[in-house]
Design a protein around this nucleic acid. Structure first.
Length: 948
DNA sequence: ACGATCACG
DNA sequence: GACGTACGTGATCGTA
């Protein structure tokens, strides 16, 4: 019996578009854009790696679109007529896709007058008739029609799909999940819903939901259309009856042609390995050096000299500044997952613990049932002592299904009791990646881990701001591993799946779980060896050891404390907001003369500027009218009542959905409190950010919003205490730019905006003070004359005069800006007073908008970042200072950039307040002696609102 | 998945 | 010669 053949058909055209949008705009050494090509190359690479695996490809071909004309255009001239031209920097990449394919020595099929989809369908069916299995590498929903299996000459022959970007196999079940019908009926669903990208009409007003419901109910498109006349009167019925012809034509358009002539016979697609030479030439030419390295490693050829910059494929606008990532990799063997041990007996566990104690350094990772550390149950722990020297200790696998057998494991209680001394031992450093999470989980099991190191935080101290717009600059483990070790760890979703079919980690079989979990510890250990030495070389030690690392357990503690919210009060507010919103919605519809979705800026824009004919509508780059607050306020000022109503409606719906509803959801059932999660690497400047829920943007500026703050309350017998730095960023600007006038004003405790008004306009009125305040902030943010003009509603010339006056009155500011920019241009990064770096890879970009954006951010970063450093230092010292004075019941709950929120017994307020104030006011010392005092304002009350 | 909008410092 | 204009975040909604 012959081995099962398996044909892979790669939908090259659709892949390149997706890769283009997902990847950064890389260019090769000659300046040709290659981002999409890079994505395509890595995908082929991955497929080629599967060559020898069970169910891997035996045959493979790449199918491309030759041109967009096909038989479909004869049926329907508008087919794909509204496709925009591909982006300019994608066009030169099309021919490179063919080069890449050739470099892998793979066949590349394209045919005049045939679309790739039809060729794929034809080949897939032909192979299936031969009894082969087929995998279509694509995520195009049209192709999902083909999924399924038939009886071939040697048993069932199946067609499935592979979405390489999501690492997802698509088989019958996945198609049914997406469309609600079997693959054979997908075409019927598509015919009803249409496709705006291909300009297939479908039936207007029918989307994916209605389409699959109709087809599932009636069994086919024809049956659904026939049934329309018996439906009860509705919009849907009308549309079905009226547009039957459109739907039927759409059905033809989405049908794949399965009987094209085959340009090449199937047997020509046979794979026999990838000859390395042409591939190496291709990778070298385009600067894909990380792949080149892997090719060398794989083929056992001698190492190339290390003069190749590992990050040669530079991103656009890269200043070519210091490349902190280009240190030679330490000598380490490649990751070998088969070397990991599954620890299933106390004996083996004790042996690992003993070795960890001897090593004085161990990487640790916990596996749990949830991403939310406050709800997560511990499922296992992994340890790593060296490269490939790692183990996984399952503690909570199986057992959720009472019929399934629970694999052999060490008893959880006993294992934790054995691990506790190690994890708490002063003599052993525990290395984590994002240790705050593990600290929280373990703390809930009674283990206070210390001392710790954290590779994520090290990476942040070294590389904050590197990478662009979140691409390639992150500090997550997978990214760090890719970047520094050239290794791709197993993705979580590969182990647990995703979406509805996601299983908890505790259900993962032990062999697979060990590969994943032990690898995480192994990678963490390797990353630490790689990153830690860079700290001292690159000047990151101070910020890491003195600020960010000690902050980890402090913030972890704050997250575990949580804050009490008054559910009943929020519910009542929700109810009020709902009623008021409904009333406003009616009024808005009345004013508009029709019903529409108020929450849709698109529909609202059309109503305001087309139907009602208001003037001055401005369309943004998306081609729709802007309807943001400033626009609506202008209209309201011109007497448009509807604009006023919409503003009110927006405020209320925002408050309800984002706060009063969401906060009730966020209450932890075990603790009865809300536990946010702070990101220690969220903001490039060094600030924290807060998620799930975000407690750093609770309303305060309006009376109606402040009601939400009233729902944040202390436990009985306690009060909330809020301590704010007053004007900290302006104070720091005064210090850093060395502005005498401002320093003096702060020293004298003056109202700084009023003082600015005096200097700028000669007198203090409500108006001049407000303008002065705007200008003060504008300067901190590196504003332009046009920006300031917009804010103050004056002409740019006048704004420029104000900026000039400001610089004249406050000499030092301009110099600060110039010097900061010069340094950043030269070094590539800015620094805070405490040495925190933020990188600006686009500071020397040739793209003006990009460059100026970086310049503004670079002016602001040292100030915002220094402020972040200071409050972080205060947080680290706060609880020890309070405990030292015997204040054991003061709890630090929240941080909001320049504010700390505490909960404490009423009786402790008097004693605690001056300590809190002192710790915050002195937080810069002794590292930095500021030329201005740091003002701290403290309030207390029976709610967060009242504490202000 | 992304843009628009709006909540905060 | 035109562009697009204040820094840093996160959540929600509608739309593609």
């Amino acid at each position: 019996m012959p081995d099962q053949q398996h044909l892979y058909l790669v939908d090259g055209s659709s892949y390149i578009f997706r890769a283009y949008h997902r990847l950064p705009p890389l260019t090769d050494p000659e300046g040709t854009p290659v981002g999409a090509v890079y994505g395509y190359t890595t995908m082929l690479w991955k497929l080629a790696e599967d060559l020898d695996k069970a169910d891997g490809p035996t045959h493979l071909a790449v199918i491309l679109d030759k041109d967009s004309q096909s038989f479909r255009n004869e049926i329907y001239p508008e087919y794909k007529a509204n496709r925009p031209d591909p982006p300019e920097d994608l066009v030169p990449q099309f021919p490179l896709i063919r080069d890449a394919t050739r470099a892998f020595s793979l066949p590349c099929i394209e045919e005049q007058g045939l679309e790739a989809d039809d060729l794929i369908a034809t080949y897939a069916r032909a192979a299936q008739r031969e009894g082969w299995n087929v995998t279509i590498v694509s995520s195009d929903k049209d192709l999902m029609q083909l999924v399924g299996e038939v009886d071939g000459p040697n048993g069932p022959a199946r067609i499935d799909m592979l979405d390489t970007m999501k690492s997802q196999r698509i088989y019958i079940e996945e198609v049914e999940d997406k469309f609600g019908v079997k693959p054979e009926l997908v075409g019927d669903v598509l015919a009803l819903m249409g496709d705006s990208v291909d300009n297939i009409p479908g039936i207007y007003g029918i989307g994916p939901k209605t389409a699959s419901k109709l087809i599932a109910e009636h069994g086919s498109l024809t049956a659904a259309l026939d049934a329309a006349e018996y439906m009860k009167k509705s919009k849907l019925k009308e549309r079905l009856l009226e547009n039957r012809a459109d739907a039927e034509m759409s059905r033809v358009l989405v049908t794949l042609k399965e009987d094209c002539d085959l340009p090449e016979p199937l047997d020509d697609f046979k794979l026999d390995g990838v000859p390395p030479e042409p591939l190496a030439a291709f990778l070298e030419k385009h600067g894909f050096t990380s792949l080149l390295r892997r090719l060398d490693a794989g083929s056992g050829s001698p190492d190339r000299p290390n003069n190749l910059n590992p990050e040669k494929a530079q991103t656009k606008g890269d200043a070519g500044t210091e490349e902190g990532n280009s240190q030679p990799l330490p000598e380490m063997p490649a990751v070998d997952r088969s070397a990991y041990e599954t620890v299933q007996t106390m004996d083996r566990l004790l042996s690992w613990i003993e070795r960890a104690e001897a090593a004085h350094e161990v990487a640790v990772d916990t596996e749990t049932s949830s991403l939310d550390a406050m709800r997560a149950e511990l499922v296992g722990v992994s340890l790593a002592l060296g490269p490939n020297e790692a183990c996984y200790i399952p503690l909570g696998h199986g057992g959720s299904d009472m019929f399934a057998e629970r694999p052999e494991q060490v008893d959880r209680e006993a294992a934790l009791a054995a691990l506790k001394p190690l994890l708490e031992s002063d003599a052993v450093t525990k290395i984590f990646q994002n240790g705050k999470y593990d600290l929280n989980v373990l703390a809930r099991y009674g283990i206070e881990v210390s001392p710790i190191e954290d590779t994520m935080i090290v990476s942040f101290a070294l590389d904050a701001g590197r990478g662009q717009d979140g691409i390639g600059g992150g500090h997550g483990m997978d990214e760090l591993s890719e970047r520094h070790l050239g290794h791709t760890p197993i993705a979580f979703k590969e182990v647990c799946g995703t979406g509805k079919k996601q299983i908890p980690f505790g259900e993962v079989p032990l062999d697979k779980a060990t590969e994943y979990a032990a690898e995480d510890a192994d990678v963490t250990w390797r990353l630490y060896q790689h990153l830690k030495p860079r700290l001292s070389v690159e000047g990151g030690t101070r910020i890491y050891e003195r600020v960010d690392r000690p902050l980890i357990p402090v913030v972890a503690g704050m997250e575990r404390e949580g804050i009490k919210v008054d559910r009943a009060r929020l519910a009542k507010l929700s109810e009020e907001f709902a009623q008021e919103t409904a009333r406003l919605e009616d009024e808005i519809h009345e004013a508009a003369g029709q019903e529409f979705t108020v929450g849709s800026p698109k529909q609202l824009g059309d109503i305001l500027f087309e139907k009602l004919g208001y003037k001055g509508g401005k369309k943004g780059k998306s081609g729709q009218y802007s309807t943001d607050q400033s626009v609506l306020e202008r209209l309201a000022g011109e007497g448009a009542d509807i604009a006023k109503l919409v503003l009110e409606w927006r405020q209320l719906t925002k408050l309800k959905s984002t706060y009063t509803d969401a906060l009730q959801q966020a209450i932890n059932p075990d603790t009865g409190r809300v536990h946010t999660s702070y990101s220690l690497v969220g903001a490039q400047t060094g600030r924290l950010s807060s998620t799930d829920p975000n407690l750093q943007n609770i309303p305060i500026r309006t009376a109606i919003g402040r009601q939400i703050r009233e729902a944040f309350v202390p436990e009985s017998g306690n009060v909330l205490l809020a301590a704010d730095y007053s004007q900290i960023e302006l104070r720091l600007a005064a210090h850093m730019a060395d502005v005498e006038t401002l320093k003096e004003a702060f020293a004298n405790g003056e109202d700084i905006h009023a003082r600015t008004a005096t200097e700028m306009f000669g007198e203090v009125t409500r108006d001049t003070r407000a303008r002065a305040k705007t200008i003060n902030f504008a300067i901190l943010y590196g504003i332009s004359r046009w920006g300031l003009a917009g804010r103050l509603e004056v002409e740019p010339d006048e704004a420029q005069e104000m900026i000039d006056t400001y610089f004249k009155r406050f000499p030092g500011i301009q110099r600060y800006i110039m010097e900061t920019l010069e340094t950043v241009r030269e070094r590539g990064y800015s620094q805070t007073l405490f040495g925190r770096k933020t990188w600006f890879p686009r500071i020397n970009s040739k793209n003006q908008a990009e460059r100026q954006g970086s310049e503004r951010a670079a002016i602001n970063a040292p100030i915002q970042g220094t402020s972040a450093d200071i409050i972080k230092r205060a947080m680290v010292r706060m609880l020890p200072a309070l405990r030292e004075e015997g204040l054991d019941n003061v709890r630090m709950l929240l941080q909001v950039h320049d504010e700390l929120v505490f909960e404490l017994p009423e009786g402790d307020v008097e004693k605690a307040s001056p300590i809190i104030e002192r710790v915050m006011a002195e937080a810069a010392r002794p590292a930095v002696e500021l030329a201005v005092p740091l003002g701290v304002e403290i309030g207390t009350g029976a709610s967060w609102d009242a504490a202000h």
